[in-house]
Structure formats: C-alpha cells, structure tokens
Design a protein around this nucleic acid. Structure first.
Lengths: 198, 198
DNA sequence: GACGTACTAGACAGATCGGTCTATAGGAGT
DNA sequence: ACTCCTATAGACCGATCTGTCTAGTACGTC
C-alpha cells in the first residue's frame, strides 16, 4: 500500500497540483513549470503520463466532474421527499460556496480560457449534460408538468448562482437560487401535467 | 469630417479590432500583434494611445458596457407597463443571443481569463452593479414586495441565460429565463409588501 | 519653408511558453 | 546478475508574448 499512504504516484501528485493551481489561477495562466514544481515531479513524468498540457487539462476537469457529481449525489441521499431532493441540489451548491477555495465553476472558467475545439470545451459539455440530466430526473420525480422545461429553468438558476458566488463573492447566492427554485417548482406542480401555457 | 467617414482615428480602429478579436477569442489568447495587424495600425500607436494591454482591455470592456447599457435602456422604452419593461430585459437579451457573433457575456469571459486585481475584474464589477441596479429599479416600479430580493433572483436568471446561450449554444435560453422571471415576478406581487416568508 | 503632431514600419529586448532530449538512479521480476 | 520500468534533474529548442526604441513619413499651421 505505498501508493496512497506513504507517497502518492507521480500521476496523483500532478493531478492534485493541477487541481489546485488550474482551479485557483486558471488553466491558461498556470504554466507547466508551475505544475511540476508544485507537484514535485520531473517534467518528463508529466509528459509521459499525460502527453500534453491539453490532456492534463482534460484529466483535471474529468476528476472535478467525478468529484462534484459524487458529492452532489451523496448529499441528495439525505433527503426523503422528491421536493427536498430537488431543492437539495442548491443546498449542496451552498456547501461548495462556503469553502474558502471556491472560485466558481471550473468548467465555465476553463471553457472561457480555452479554444473552441479544446478538451476543456468537451469536458464542460459533458458536465453540463450531467447537470441537466440530474435536474430533469429530479423534476420528473417531483411530478412537474413539464420536467424538461423546469430542468432548464433550474439550470439557469444553478449557473447563475455559481457565477454570482464567484464574481460578486456572494456565497448566499445558493440561498437565493433555492428560494427561486421553490417558486418555480410550485408553479410547475400547479400546472396541469400536459399543456403549454405561456 | 475625415474622422468617422473616410478614415477612423487610430484609437477607433484599435478599439474596433479589440472589440472583435478579444470578444471572439479571448483577451488572453489574442496578442498585441494580432490587434495591430487587424486594426492596420503601428504598434507605437497602440502604446501611445492606451499605454498597455491591460488598459486596452479596460477600454474594450468599458466600450462594451456603454454599448450594452445603451442598447438595453433603449429597448425598454418600447414597453409601457412596468411588468413588460421588467420582462423586456430578457427580450433584449434574446436579441443579443441571436446575433451570429454572440459569444457570451464579455465580462464573464474576460474576468475568467484575467488575474484577480486586473482592470477586467474592475470593469466586470461595475457592469454587474449596473445590471443589479437596473433589475432593482424595475422590480420597484413593478411593485414587488421585496425589490432587492426579486432583483437578485432575476439576476441569476439573466446570468444563467447568457451562460447557457454560450456554452450550450442555445439562443432560446432567454425565452426560458423570461418565462421563469414572469413566474418569480407574479409570486413577488402576491407576497405582502413587507414580510419575510421563507 | 519650418515645425509640431500623428502616424507607420519594423527591429529588438527580455521573459515565458509548451515540449523534447540526454543522462542518471532506484526498485521489481525473471 | 541483468533488464525493464518509472522516476529524477535540468539543459535545450523554437515560438510567442508584452513592451521599447529608432527612423522615417504625411499633413496642417504658423
């Protein structure tokens, strides 16, 4: 068991350094030299393991995706009713916001820095698909008249909250989003299950 | 009239080039050389006029702020009732989304690329303050029970919509946001003018 | 014609970038 | 003992970055 206890592998140390530096300062700003220095590895180790900076960025974002989805999923098991589970997404978001290292959605910032066809954009697309699917499923379970439509609306609040938490340095954005989500949910339950009223 | 008709000044050409390239590809990705080449000016002209790239970024964002606020303000004069004016913000947003060059909120992307104390962050803060103030004023005029609270909620939808329009390439995000905003507005009007119910 | 202003063209400096390469060292499996 | 694998340190390459500097040009005003 020398892997995790005594000394993590080079790959793990590099990913940890990337997770910290890329997230805090941006994937464009942080250079390879900073990463290997912070991880305490040789440059060759990084390129033997990941091949390029772009692939390292992809691995960094994929690990974040895994962390966030696991964390949110686990947090939702605390709640019993469908309504509580749906609104619980914003509670889980609020917990992230209060962490001192929180610096916004990693996929949004990385995507803003990267070129159009880059790995960052692909990883962001995948993450957004997961969020959308989560909200859609929760909206269905809650009995919303139009689950897709409610999921889209909740996704707007979710994105807006993470953006406000970063740019306005306002961790209470998740509370505002949660309250707004409750109003939207109630309205979606009031609507008849199959009709389109604008 | 040789200024605007025949040949714009170097400053105007530089700003136009910055507005196009910075917005499309990012302030970090686009270098000074690309700007001066696209503007057709000498490098010395850029540095004599703006002093540094950071100041050029600030000027670029300030010009965008002026453009957007002027455009939104003018669009809102079309509507008569307070309710229409409030929801009209999302109509104006939808018009921006349909433009082929739309690439998300310039302040969000620029802020994601720039360092913490940079001009971009300052310009973004200023812009966000304007948006917040606009929503607050419209919420007051519409007679919302808690205008600040409603403004915060609408701001989440507004940010979420621009983010979705860019990342999901979905111009209809403004329509979703507008529908959600209508629900939130109605609820804010139903609430008694001075009480706090969670 | 002289002069100041605004501009252009482009070399240049100093730093940093992503990425490759050489050379070396230690540990595990045969 | 020998080899393979993984790791190390660090020189090195070509490209690119922001910013400076020199030199020369067109124009409008006195």
């Amino acid at each position: 068991m020398p892997r995790t206890a005594v000394k993590p592998s080079a790959r793990e140390r590099i990913l940890a350094a990337a997770n910290e530096l890329f997230y805090r300062e941006g994937v464009q700003t942080v250079g390879i030299d900073r990463i290997i220095e912070h991880a305490g590895v040789a440059k060759a180790s990084l390129y033997n393991t990941f091949g390029s900076k772009d692939e390292l960025v992809r691995a960094y974002l994929e690990s974040r995706h895994a962390n966030v989805s696991e964390r949110v999923t686990r947090a939702l098991t605390r709640f019993r009713t469908p309504r509580e589970r749906l609104l619980g997404v914003f509670d889980a978001q609020g917990e992230l916001f209060t962490e001192p290292t929180y610096n916004g959605c990693a996929f949004v910032t990385a995507s803003a820095e990267a070129a159009l066809g880059s790995s960052a954009r692909q990883a962001a697309e995948k993450y957004r698909g997961w969020v959308r699917g989560l909200f859609t499923r929760l909206a269905e379970e809650a009995g919303a008249a139009d689950p897709d439509d409610l999921a889209r609306r909740l996704h707007l609040l979710y994105d807006g909250a993470s953006l406000s938490a970063r740019m306005d340095r306002d961790p209470s954005a998740s509370t505002t989003a949660r309250a707004a989500a409750a109003v939207l949910l109630d309205e979606a339950l009031r609507r008849p299950p199959s009709s389109g009223s604008t």
